[in-house]
Design a protein around this nucleic acid. Sequence first.
RNA 1: GUGGGUAUAGCGUAGUUGGUUAACGCGCCAGAUUGUGGCUCUGGAGAGCGUGGGUUCGAGUCCCACUACUCACCCCA
Length: 420
Amino acid sequence: MQIQAPRGTRDVLPADSFRWQYLESKMRQAAALAGYREVRTPVFEHTELFLRGVGDTTDIVQKEMYTFKDKGDRSITLKPEGTAGAARCFLEHNLYAEALPCKMYYLDAPIFRYENPQSGRLREHHQFGLECFGAQEATADAELILLAYHLLEELGIRNLKVKINSIGCPKCRPAYHRTLKDYLADRLDGLCEDCRERFDRNPLRALDCKERKCRELTKDAPSMLDLLCDECRAHFEELKGCLDSAGIPYTVDSRIVRGLDYYTKTVFELITETKDGSLTVCGGGRYDNLVGEIGGPSLPAVGFGMGLERVLMLLEGEGITLPEPRWYDIFITYMGSHRADAFRLVQALRAEGIRADLDHCGRSLKAQFKYANKTGAPLTGVIGDEEAAAGAVKIKNMATGEEQTVTAQDAPALIRQIIQ
RNA sequence: GUGGGUAUAGCGUAGUUGGUUAACGCGCCAGAUUGUGGCUCUGGAGAGCGUGGGUUCGAGUCCCACUACUCACCCCA
């Protein structure tokens, strides 16, 4: 059997890569506008980082990581999310000793999760993520939500829903945990297996469980929002105030708790409603304990991740066409014996910054034109006996059919003038 | 990890109750137009039917397994 790409992975073909490049440029722009600069971290990290950072009770760590031993007997894991690596990098290079906050973004970061693939869900996908280290105020949370919202909106994605919640901090969450556990303890037998297992260490997950019986049983469960400490409550109120003043629609959903353990206070998701259900394109929140958890100073931070494949999928679903750059400015055709002239001209044009090419397949003049037409080149050049003798090229405008002969020296200027 | 659907040339499909050299559209190549594309016409190349087994005189058509795709659950971006 022919070798195929591994399950749950996708190739981006030359004809489609411009879509990615377009997204990338928009994302870089949005990030730069808010003071975020790019960071690039390894595709794999020590497994330990994710055990401590992401949390060893999470589904991601328990059943979805690509973990293996390298030849030095180290346990290595392909990044299952972006934040832990960024935090490790921040810490390792003592960036906390420099001016804070430290704002960074990553783009096209490959993320690996061993899941059952389906629409909008791959084993390798790519994220655009922002992290802001050292900022505790809610304005930092708000600017991230707004940045994500405006970016998606600008790209043309409709029906965007913003959901926010606060899941408290180490001061108030234990009390809530106890309250919730008391509530759940009476109903433990009715919960699904996963929720029963997570009951001790992470009872919050039960609120987010999709099992009907769990949903039913937790319908009237106490809400974290009612038990936030003063600090968390004030923080959440300020966040809502920021979003209100920015005028974006959002809803408070006390059931979103996210699948990663490091979150504190703010958690949020950007969701779109498509014909077959809702899809989360962006998710994030505050993680004031992560840096400390992995051995650094106690330092607040907030961030989000956005799935590029999902964004692309939504754009396609909405029939949005992205601007496709021109492949060639001009395609130089030639008669039988003048290939060398065509080659020299193409090299000269490229040196002038003009996207030019010639036939490398020994095709007839007619076939060369057909090919030129297929590439969408706005211009073609012909070098036949007459042109070759005169050191010239006949340039044709493919849209109008107009032709004019110029010397090779004058060609770049003319070409530039026409394609303006 | 669990359950359902699908698997025929590069792509999209047709293949009747299993029966001779597997069909069509698009795409590709060539010609009509030996210095010129897009339209049209003509011709051509290209699959032995996901892989491996089985049933049968005979299987793309039936059965089993595997793989992949897909959908739902789960989880998430």
